[in-house]
Design a protein around this nucleic acid. Structure first.
Length: 111
RNA sequence: UGAGCAGGCCGGAUGGCCGCGGGCGCAGCGCCGCAAGGCCGCGCCUGAGGAAAGUCCGGGCUCCGCAGGGCAGGGUGCUGGCUAACGGCCAGUGGGGGCGACCCUAAGGAAAGUGCCACAGAAAUGGAGACCGCCGCACCAGCGGCAAGGAUGCAACGGUGAGGUAAGAGCUCACCAGCGGCCAGGCGACUGGUCGGCUAGGUAAACCCCACCCGGAGCAAGACCUAGUAGGGGAAGGAUGAGGUUGCCCGCUGACUUCCCGGGAAGGUCGCACGAGGCGCCAGGCAACUGGCGUCCUAGAUAGAUGGUCAUCCUCGACAGAACCCGGCUUACAGGCCUGCUCACACG
RNA sequence: GUCCCUAUAGCUCAGGUGGAUAGAGCGGGGGAUUCCUAAUCCCCGUCUGCCGGAGGUUCGAGUCCUCCUAGGGACA
């Protein structure tokens, strides 16, 4: 199923201001616990990474990694996942592992 | 064989599994809902480009008072044609480059007017002017004639040759360049011929003149729903009038203040994909293109769909992602294919 | 989506109507003063052959025209 997404710029701003951040080599994860069952996520890939093709590719891989991790996620979090420049040419498995460990640090991973 | 020119085309392929957007279908099952239906799920189909890019032009579409008049402003600029339109394309003309195939070309007007042409130079457009010089008289100053040669400069008052002369000069003649008239050909740009007066600098991507074109904003346009009220309405004041209408004037509109009534988020649906459409054949045309017939349907998201993984093959994969649509231009691009043509060498 | 602006010395900026040598301030370097430093004063642009890049117009381009590149900004 398609993940529930953050849409409004204000929601992103709130996460940057009040959420906790976990920085890795390829991604940065912002997390804020809201309670409840629903988990919402937003993906950010800045223009620094390149043109539309490069940014689309990074965002798709972030979304795929999130999709694979989604079943073991605890509910009630708002997340923002930001792609960093090095995520452009990293192998997917490394990206996946890093995101997994960052989400575990954030406490959003149940298993 | 090697160099090269022009035009056209492709832009990793195939398959398995797990996912994503859109469309259609689903007896039954699960969840939500009074219901219509929705969600999940399942099946089938479909899913980025030649430039989707830059936003440099043009048009469709939508709204703005159907957009009026004048001035200003902007654009285009050899000719003819094509087109919905264009700054695009096609065919030609002139000029330039290349041995050639072929390529490039913002190319109207300088006798409508104005400006500018630094330095140098006697002189930079006035029918002006003479530094060295040449010639005559004087024979030391000087006076008069001349503009061929030298010198300066991007550019110097047509060029070459002959006659002529004191020396010279379109002063005279021939050819050439340029200008104007006439004749012929061509729709035309222009080309060819002939005659004439002997000559008129460059710059218009300087102002300008001429011809033609241009209302503004843009799909976040705009319409509808949720929503029978609001987005404003009513009354009074204000007219010595804010602002808007691309800039200015006219014209049009009427801001603002007080009182009364009323209200604010966000979302959904449409626009939104059948169109100046693609392909094939025939006809007209040198061509761009047009007409007829047949055939095909080919992304439509809304934080924004193409990813992950495995396998095989090859030349080991460039530039790069739709956001209303279309016609162009420009720019980026690994590698490869096809067609026609040119030159050189060799052989026949 | 529609538009606009900027790019000149190490930095921040000037450079009417196109004329040889492109400037200013700060910084930097050298010197003087001082026991030393700061401040102050003097000198220096072989600390820039060049105006973001490429073409073009012109005799001549930082300036005019066209196309690119990078950076910044405005509106909805």
């Amino acid at each position: 199923m398609r993940p529930e997404t953050l849409t409004q710029n204000a929601e992103f701003q709130e996460l940057y201001r009040r959420g906790r951040s976990y920085v890795g080599k390829f991604v940065v994860v912002y997390a804020l616990e809201r309670g409840g069952e629903r988990t919402r996520v937003g993906f950010t890939v800045g223009k620094k990474l390149g043109g539309a093709v490069a940014r689309n590719r990074v965002r798709r891989r972030l979304r795929e990694a999130y999709r694979l991790l989604y079943p073991s996620l605890a509910g009630g979090y708002d997340l923002v996942i930001v792609g960093r420049t090095r995520a452009k040419d990293v192998r997917f498995r490394k990206l996946l592992e890093e995101m997994k460990s960052l989400l575990k640090q954030a406490g959003a991973l149940t298993r």
